[in-house]
Design a protein around this nucleic acid. Structure first.
Lengths: 224, 224
DNA sequence: GGGATATGACCTTTGAGTAAGTTACCTCAA
DNA sequence: TTGAGGTAACTTACTCAAAGGTCATATCCC
């Protein structure tokens, strides 16, 4: 007579998995792997802990699924932008714009990508390596163009600048997440102004050409 | 007759506290608060866990002492640089240089400052707020000058750029920590080259004057 | 009735924190 | 000089709570 709530509720596995995955992404992305509890995620998803284990095997398995979903979503968006014909700082700006738009409905995906409390071995580490490679490759491309443009061919300089660029993206997205109510479009404009400011207000002709050409930003009438 | 190893070894409290603090800084700074274990730190310091509790009260108390030590060391260095007469990007460069030199003997202090697994309430949060304020104030000053220089007076732009600058510093230090063997001086030169590159190779005259004046960097002959 | 969906109750590990006792040093009276 | 007592330094062996993970069982659909 106990265990009264047991028994199937007629929800197919695929549906439940998606439901659990969604809850897991939000919790892992918000609190990080270490502080998240499987029981908590199960509660958020409206089911019990053993079902999570039945479907995902372990906390790590659940994280892996969440990570793969989030990383694929973001990496795909960045690659989509990279496939465009934009170069240099304009490409950077378009990447940021794409990220803001992609993250708007599920901002926690960003933190999921860089969770420092995630396990650093096993399948999770492998998956992280794959996506880090995919994303870093794009950043390296962009930074490489810029370095060529200014005549610095030191590979370590390029490596360091890539790190700076990726952290700058992180900073901008984090800042945005801390300022709810700012739309992706506004944020993209802000990034454009900041790039201009950093470039010393007087961009060299090549870059100015790239920047001014295709993006309808900054000018008096703002999009939003 | 059991508990054979008990009993004082004649080491005064102040000495032991320092010894424990040193071990704690390294462990907390390397693995982060969450993954660090008090027993492990005690072992590293060559004493037993209860002694740590007798001297520091709790894991959080031990972390607080470590954090205060590290944060004070770094904040003091940044303020020392800020008290100089340098401005704008040169000041940024000097700040980086000071950090590289300060961190050389105890690099783990950096991660201690930004440990995301540290408790986010209680005394630790308060201490973090204090030091975050002190450090952010310096960054805001520097960024403010730059924004004035380029004519952007949007406070949110300044806020976002401050975040970008601080993350860029973090990126450079992290990159440096990942490349052992690079000296602080070499790293400072690299930062100079990167700032030049980002500025589009053609700095506006005001900045170029500042940069070129006092720092003997960038020129053809590289240290490494 | 068989298999998929589902759960309450349990086991187990890990690490923070504590109780209680042990040893050594220091001081001071005789 | 000595030795008795007080105190600071120090440890072993424990408690306790949280969270990952499992087991046995229950319900429902085909």
């Amino acid at each position: 007579m106990s265990r009264v709530n047991a028994g199937t509720k007629g929800v197919p596995r695929a549906d439940r998995e998606l439901q659990i995955l969604r809850a897991a992404c939000e919790v892992f992305g918000t609190m990080g792997f270490a502080k998240a509890s499987v029981a908590g995620i199960a509660a958020d998803a409206g089911i019990s802990k053993p079902l999570v284990y039945q479907y995902f095997g372990s906390k790590e398995g659940l994280f892996l699924a969440s990570f793969n979903y989030g990383a694929e979503t973001l990496a795909a968006e960045m690659e989509r932008v990279a496939a465009d014909d934009s170069v240099g700082l304009e490409r950077g700006l378009r990447t940021l714009d794409g990220l803001f738009r992609t993250l708007e409905p599920q901002p926690w995906l960003w933190r999921l990508l860089f969770d420092p409390s995630a396990p650093d071995d096993g399948e999770v580490a492998a998956a992280r390596a794959v996506y880090t490679d995919r994303i870093t490759r794009l950043a390296v491309e962009g930074v490489g163009e810029l370095m060529r443009l200014v005549g610095d061919d030191d590979p370590l300089d390029a490596s360091a600048l890539t790190a700076v660029w990726m952290n700058a993206v992180d900073a901008l997205i984090t800042w945005w997440l801390d300022h709810p109510g700012v739309t992706p479009a506004e944020m993209t404009e802000r990034c454009h102004r900041l790039i201009t400011a950093i470039s010393g207000a007087a961009l060299p002709p090549q870059l100015a050409a790239h920047l001014g050409a295709e993006l309808p930003v900054v000018s008096p009438g703002r999009t939003q």
